[in-house]
Amino acid sequence: MDERRAAMVEDPAVDLTVDGSGVGGVLATAFGAEMTSSRGRCAHCHTVSIVGTMRAYVRGPGVVLRCPACAEVVLRIVETPRGVLVDARGLAWMVVDRR
């Protein structure tokens, strides 16, 4: 895991990412709740992390969240005029807080 994390830190694309906390608006639209302080479990490496600490790639047409431990894709979200598309294949589970 440490090797993968080291590789990720040195990945030039890391400079193109923000934290999950930077995409809280999109997440709130998709899930109807504040999500950045919620926890989610990566389906690939099973690490549980706070959504606000995941890596968010925002340069594409949507938002891609990657696991901060193994860098695999956890969540993909695209907002369209018709609705919000959520691809959660990389997520084992995530908590949506009751408000």
Binding site: D19, S21, G24, G25, T36, S37, G52
Partner: peptide
């Protein structure tokens, strides 16, 4: 604008 957003930082 929309917000406020975030609960971690």
């Amino acid at each position: 604008v929309r917000g406020p957003i975030g609960g971690y930082f």
